[in-house]
Nucleic acid binder design. Sequence first.
DNA 1: CGTCTGTTTTGAAGTCTGTCAATCTAGAAG
DNA 2: CTTCTAGATTGACAGACTTCAAAACAGACG
Lengths: 125, 125
Amino acid sequence: MSKLKDLPVIDSPTAEPCCEPLAEHSISTADAIALAPAFKALGDPIRLQLLSQIASAPEGESCVCDLECGFEVSGPTISHHLKVLREAGLITGERRGTWVYYSAVREKMAALAALLITESSTATA
Amino acid sequence: MSKLKDLPVIDSPTAEPCCEPLAEHSISTADAIALAPAFKALGDPIRLQLLSQIASAPEGESCVCDLECGFEVSGPTISHHLKVLREAGLITGERRGTWVYYSAVREKMAALAALLITESSTATA
DNA sequence: CGTCTGTTTTGAAGTCTGTCAATCTAGAAG
DNA sequence: CTTCTAGATTGACAGACTTCAAAACAGACG
């Protein structure tokens, strides 16, 4: 569907899709599908703040009772967002007695950051 | 909404919300609102691949005609996703003659990565 | 055991998002 | 000027997301 006039017009529909294998230089579809949910989880201001508070907590973990303060949403909503972050692999929750404590998964956060840095520096050459 | 029994129950609605100023240690609500859209833009596999292809292109930029290859979605859908990435400040588009070329905004990508690295290393101490 | 508090789950309403078909715009070519 | 191609826009629809009220669940405490 592109530049068919400037090229030899190779008629091999069984080979490459239509143009140069550009996709080889970047992440695969499978990787994109695997990584997108984590970014999507960060795509909400409340979740971004929740993760920020958890990651920057003194002990490296935060109680839900502390997290619920400072937000204008109800408790169940916070719980929902925490679940999203948990399912995205960005935080882990642990129940200790009455309260539940969440801590950030720094590996995951670093992996996402590395992807952005890699992408932003690969083509700088 | 929490720990009201353990605390002096300060009744000053004009001052802090309810508990310790935890939010001060992490990003502000305004920052969260400002940064979340960029992460949200990355929260789609197709957009993640688009940005990856653009950022890793030989010249640092990609023509839409090249980008549309390798995806199972229609042209308008690609155009829509490029618009989302553009409005998120992750890419910029430029028309040169017949074709439109997109290039990645590495500053923005690095800023998002830095946020994740900061968040993941701040509490490591 | 019964109750109280903290947290999660469920159900429902409203909004947003991803996708395509159809249409429109911008530049190149004749 | 007309026509053609590359992209973008519009309109519409199905599905997902955010949110809260209500209910359920899990420990602690009496």
